[in-house]
Design a protein around this nucleic acid. Sequence first.
DNA 1: AACAATTTGAGGTACGTCAATCAAATGATC
DNA 2: GATCATTTGATTGACGTACCTCAAATTGTT
Lengths: 342, 342
Amino acid sequence: MPRSTVHDVARAAGVSLATVDRVLNRRPGVRSQTISKVEAAALAVNYSRDVAAANLARRREYPMLFIVPSGSNSFMRGLEREIRRGASQFAAERIHIDVVTVPAMDADALTRAIDRIDPAVHDALAFVAVDAPQVRAAINRLSKRGVPAVTLVSDLPASSRVHYCGVDNVRAGRTAAGLLGRFVSPPGTQIAILSGSLRLNDHAERKSGFEAVMTAEFPHLDVLPAMQGNDDSDLTETIVTQLLSERPELAGLYNLGAGNRGVIRALRKSGRAGMVKVIAHELTDHAREALETGLFEAVINQDAGRQVRSAVRVLKAQLDERPVIADQERIRIDIFLRDNMP
Amino acid sequence: MPRSTVHDVARAAGVSLATVDRVLNRRPGVRSQTISKVEAAALAVNYSRDVAAANLARRREYPMLFIVPSGSNSFMRGLEREIRRGASQFAAERIHIDVVTVPAMDADALTRAIDRIDPAVHDALAFVAVDAPQVRAAINRLSKRGVPAVTLVSDLPASSRVHYCGVDNVRAGRTAAGLLGRFVSPPGTQIAILSGSLRLNDHAERKSGFEAVMTAEFPHLDVLPAMQGNDDSDLTETIVTQLLSERPELAGLYNLGAGNRGVIRALRKSGRAGMVKVIAHELTDHAREALETGLFEAVINQDAGRQVRSAVRVLKAQLDERPVIADQERIRIDIFLRDNMP
DNA sequence: AACAATTTGAGGTACGTCAATCAAATGATC
DNA sequence: GATCATTTGATTGACGTACCTCAAATTGTT
């Protein structure tokens, strides 16, 4: 049974090809009666548009822009790599991707980059959000100019962004707590939380999820107030070194931001590796090695490639005025131990 | 910069379109000198074939057959569902998928099903293997008849199957051990292993991975000899019920096969839920609910949808005589706790 | 009934590739 | 340099859809 084509629909509906075409592409000049006749016929012969042929015929191109933070953050560099990889992959579908970087956690720089977008050049935007009013305003302006945007990795709630392509960070934090709580059994022991910047929506959410589960399910553990490492390896190293020397009872550490290199260095220096159970985020090369050597117990990961592909799919659907299947676009929270690393 | 086409290649190489076509599609009748000239030109103008247009032009169809075990095994039913879903998705790429079921763990039935394959009807096969000599022989016969095959979920090593689309089950077992070993801390406690059938390659591998890590990293835990539940809920329930009554010190249970319903029922009856930490496989509806209610601590999962899509990709590549990017086809070992279930 | 407005039909061209044909050019062989 | 085989060129018609034009048919309005 070969696929049915527009010809089959036309025959089944008893109308001409031109009319079928007008109906299928929502072109004007067709009586509503005829429209429903054609739609019924399409359903009857089980027609579905051959997307490949359609894309070929309409010379529609999909130029998109991705904005990611610059800097040495391994996860972000990995994200950029995945974007570039996606770019070459999606080229076959006439999707062209440009990438620009802006300083991390710099709301003004991000705002400027968004305002610089030329709708004649880029039809859609994906960006890693910093939660700030001026960014929100810029995105709202952008959508007024007809350019849809999605957030990547970190969300910008209450803005006109079309979709958030990233994990549910509250649940990510909850997951980390579930693991760490089970790993450190003796009661009365201390758990430390290390975050990057709470200006990033994702960090704030992870923290709240983590603390919620700790309070509810592991009340016997003593969770210390969160410290801020600013996603910076050196600052993180300083903080963790001091923490380890001050807290001999420390049994667990949850680093919910970046700066894993700093955690690793501090842990190595202290000689307490293995005694303090560490859970971190993002399976970068450093985290990988830390898992391998037993320095980290587990890593919570969000697959950058999936997020990029999801962003592209959502934006393309938006440009084609097709609905997104939200269910299919949910990004998973991966847990990696030494033995199940990909 | 619009994509370059065959025309660009022809111009760059200084040959006609026909010659470019012959080279690109490996048709005979071109001097090797000209071939390299064209290939160089293709590289120079950064040509990449427009897959959509190519698929449109060649009327190649890809009829494939999937063989899955019948029965009430939730994972297998989920797999079948994913195959059927894939079928409608891949239809756009002219890939047609048929599914047949054969009794689970029945090597002879599987052998007959493989021998029944008509190369005129199905160009490729994906199947869940039972590790038996007659199956191996049937697959070898099949590949002689020109039909490539991949194994799904459970492998058939040392056969002429082209690829295995499934997780590394040794590592899955190791992962389970890493988790369970950390979850049950008090020394001297007992851990039980429950398997389905060791005739299935995947079960045997999980068991060996689990035991290896237990011996090496958690020597203080007492791992009991593995019991066989035959992937059957009722038998599994009986076994677990008896186990729980005989072993009051039991602190952990690893169910590496199917039959989770039996484990759940036995655990509920016994009133030891939560005391015995359970790790199981496959995120079926039952496992989901068990995680939700705290009956299971963790579930190791292999994503059925991914495996199906991977199988289709690999088979299509095989039929097109394209190489497979093995790295991209590696199936991940998912870990799910209550809070990171998708 | 005459007219305009709307709806429909018929047909063509294009997208980039595949596949095939037939003619023309080139090469090798004696 | 005549003969034949091999290689290359030129051209054409699909594939399924989009989009356009122009004419024909149908409605609705007065």
